[in-house]
Structure formats: structure tokens, C-alpha cells
Write a protein that binds this DNA or RNA. Structure first.
Length: 384
DNA sequence: GACCGACTCATTTTGAGCGG
DNA sequence: CCGCTCAAAATGAGTCGGTC
């Protein structure tokens, strides 16, 4: 039907026509889209040849993913093109997914009518109680939400669904919610300031900073260490952690910072293992699974550490050999065409050495070593 | 038999709760 | 107090079964 093979073999730069995206809507607009979907469905009643129509969704598999490589900038991101996959009531296999989409839309319309917001977790419990046969696990709910997002072409947040966020921020940043007191992220203790899952609220925040860098940290423990040491007083910076793979809210927040202060470089501090690089890439390029929402939040993160050169800084015994799972992630990263060349080289180095290391290994040189390490790397422009 | 989609399972991070 | 399990947010690979 579509010449995806041809498309793939000759990479093109994106244009707006190819890019599928999710709109940010008001509750009323989102409701209207659901109603349009229902009306389309009900057209079978007046049809002379009644048949239940399929739901056209944007394909979220890797086949339909495209990589944008900026011509003028060095930014890249992943986005989805217009290939369709369908949820049909006619095929036995897909019937449940078809019903799930409608059940979820019903739930969403109720939420939107009341102008409320729920977390994915709440939605799961509600749906589990209403129709356990269709939503046995949280995963079913999450997938169906993404289905509805691609069907209605609106963001998850527009549907009234929040993600409970795990992200934290600290450092030289002043946040002000409308009609609220200003929050100073340098003064909120070692735990930092929790990034809200309410994207609407994040969008309304007024941001002020005198920082010169943004540092994204993979692990909470490292984040705490740096905040406790008041690193942002020595290095004027904003510290952000997502505690592992970043959720949407944290990515959105980072994206807002990078758009508000485009001159600030963003540095990533991750473990020296394939999963660390994967986390960095999720910040940098977005992910396919999040489909239409992912590209919106990509930002140009530079890889500060740990990298191959840093292995000599840590004791030999803190190196651990790569497990099969690590090699699997490495292979997957390698096969991605988006991975830039110097990242590829680092990854090759990691696989050939067969060993990985955690950021905590730098503590062996003293607890304040991590700070010196970061300063040294930044002033030497030692990042890629 | 090939291919595609749905589902299951594995892995990362952290924190909470429970029992020995 | 330590380890275990579960929960929550992610991502990806493998398998099974139906359709062409």
C-alpha cells in the first residue's frame, strides 16, 4: 500500500506533511473529537450497507518511525509518519483492543465532562473494576491510552490523563506558578523540587535562572549527592533527574527549560553501561513507543559522562562484566540509525571491553571527586 | 511459508511495606 | 537492620497465532 521500503532506503528530511503529531486541546475540544469519533462510528446506522468500520490509528511500530536529522542544527528526533494500523472488531484477535479503545474513550469523556484529571494508575483501577476482562493489567490501559492518542490526534494530557511524575529539579532556578509564591530550587533541601505530572501547570510556570548549564542525572542517589554538596553554587547550573527512564513530565520540563533558555547547554550524566546510553537517548531523541507525543520533548543533550575515557579514573574492581541483557540493549542501540557516530564509537568501546561501570564508582576518589570531575569535563569541553 | 499484530517477559531506577 | 516483594515509570525482545 505504501512504499515504506523505498522511503527507508532513501532517507529524506522531514516535512510537515509527513510528520504526524498530537494536538494540545482544551477539555471541550477533546470532548468534541470523541464525539466526532462516535458519530463516525454511528454512520453505520444510516448506511445502506451497514458494516462496523475499523479504527484507523497511526502505526507505532518501528516501521513507521522516521528520524529527523537537522540540516542547520545538530538536533535530531524521532517522529512517526502516516502509516496506519487498525483496530477492528471483525478480526477475533483485535476485537478486544477495539472494545478497549471505546471503553477508554467513554471513561475519558466522563473525566473531561467533570473537568478532572486522573493518573494512569487511577484509570487502571477504575477500568479494572468496570471491565476486568478487557483491562487485566496496567499495560493494557497504557497501550490503549496511546491508541486513543493516535486515533484522536491529541496529547495524552488533553484527554485528562496525568502521569505521576518522578522527576526532580534543583539548583539555580526560580519557578512561579500563577498566583503562587515563587519557588527557589536552590533552597529546597537535598530532595529537590518535585516536577509535577500536570503538564498544563508546567506550561504555565514562569521560569527564571542565572545558571549557565543544565545537568541531567540518571540516578537519584547521584542527584542527592550533588544537591547536598550544593554543586550549583560552584557550577552555576540547574540539576534534573528522572530516576531512571524519563517520564513525559520530566522530558517536557527539560524541553521547556531548553526552549526558554536556548543558550544553556544541557549535559547528561549517566552510568557507563548500555542502559545509561539508552536513557540519554530517550532524553535526546524521544521514544517510538510514546508515538505522537515523543518528538515534542526531544532536546539536545550532550553526553558528559561517564564515557570510555573515564574508566581509568575508577578502581579496576568496580568494573562489572556486561550481562546478556546489556549486550542486547547495545545491539538494539547499534541498529538504530539515529545514533550519532561518536556515540556509536563509545558503545563499540564498551562492548569490546566487555565491562560496565556505575557513576558511584567515582566516589572511590573521595566524595567530592564527582564535583571536580564535572567541572573538569565542562571546562575542557569534554563532552559529545 | 512469510508477515504482522497482540501479548508476555525481561530490565532500569527508586521507594514502600513486610517479615525474620 | 537487611533482604524480599511489589509498585510505578520507562524501553525492548521474543513468542504465538491468524491472515494472505
Amino acid at each position: 500500500m505504501e512504499t515504506t521500503g523505498l522511503f527507508k532506503s532513501s532517507m529524506r528530511f522531514f516535512s510537515d506533511q509527513e510528520l504526524c503529531y498530537a494536538d494540545i486541546l482544551t477539555p471541550q475540544e477533546a470532548l468534541a473529537r470523541i464525539q466526532v469519533a462516535v458519530l463516525n462510528f454511528l454512520r453505520i446506522l444510516s448506511s445502506s450497507t451497514p458494516a462496523i468500520s475499523n479504527l484507523p490509528l497511526i502505526d507505532r511500530s518501528s516501521n513507521n518511525s522516521r528520524v529527523n536529522q537537522g540540516i542547520l542544527t545538530d538536533e535530531s528526533w524521532i517522529f512517526l509518519s502516516h502509516s496506519f494500523s487498525t483496530r477492528s472488531l471483525m478480526r477475533a484477535n483485535a476485537a478486544k483492543a477495539f472494545v478497549r479503545v471505546w471503553k477508554l474513550m467513554e471513561m475519558c469523556s466522563q473525566i473531561l465532562l467533570q473537568e478532572k484529571r486522573v493518573t494512569q494508575r487511577e484509570l487502571f483501577y477504575k477500568l479494572l473494576c468496570d471491565s476486568p476482562a478487557y483491562f487485566p493489567t496496567q499495560l493494557h490501559v497504557n497501550r490503549t491510552i496511546q491508541d486513543v492518542v493516535t486515533l484522536l490526534r491529541c496529547s495524552r494530557f488533553s484527554l485528562g490523563v496525568m502521569a505521576s511524575s518522578r522527576g526532580l529539579v534543583a539548583g539555580r532556578l526560580l519557578l512561579q506558578e500563577p498566583e503562587q509564591e515563587t519557588v527557589d530550587c536552590a533552597a529546597c533541601g537535598s530532595s529537590g523540587y518535585a516536577i509535577s505530572g500536570d503538564l498544563d501547570l508546567l506550561q504555565k510556570l514562569t521560569l527564571k535562572t542565572d545558571a549557565r548549564y543544565v545537568i541531567v542525572i540518571e540516578k537519584h542517589a547521584i542527584f542527592q549527592r550533588l544537591v547536598e554538596d550544593r554543586v550549583f553554587n560552584h557550577i552555576p547550573s540547574i540539576l534534573i533527574t528522572a530516576k531512571g527512564y524519563p517520564d513525559i513530565a520530566t522530558r517536557y520540563f527539560l524541553h521547556r527549560i531548553s526552549k526558554t533558555f536556548p543558550h544553556l547547554p544541557i549535559f547528561g550524566l549517566v552510568d557507563w553501561n548500555p542502559a545509561g546510553l539508552a536513557i540519554l537517548c530517550t532524553f535526546k531523541y524521544g521514544s517510538i513507543g510514546m508515538g505522537l507525543e515523543a518528538y515534542r520533548y526531544a532536546c539536545n543533550v550532550k553526553w558528559l559522562g561517564m564515557r570510555g575515557d573515564d574508566v581509568q579514573l575508577i578502581p579496576q574492581e568496580s568494573l562489572v562484566s556486561l550481562k546478556p541483557r546489556d549486550l542486547q540493549i547495545a545491539k538494539s542501540l547499534m541498529s538504530s540509525e539515529i545514533l550519532q557516530e561518536n556515540y556509536r564509537e563509545e558503545l563499540t568501546l564498551m562492548v569490546e571491553g566487555g565491562q560496565k561501570a556505575e557513576l558511584e564508582a567515582l566516589y572511590h576518589n573521595g566524595f567530592d571527586y564527582l564535583q571536580k570531575y564535572i567541572v573538569k569535563k565542562i571546562i575542557q569541553f569534554n563532552y559529545i
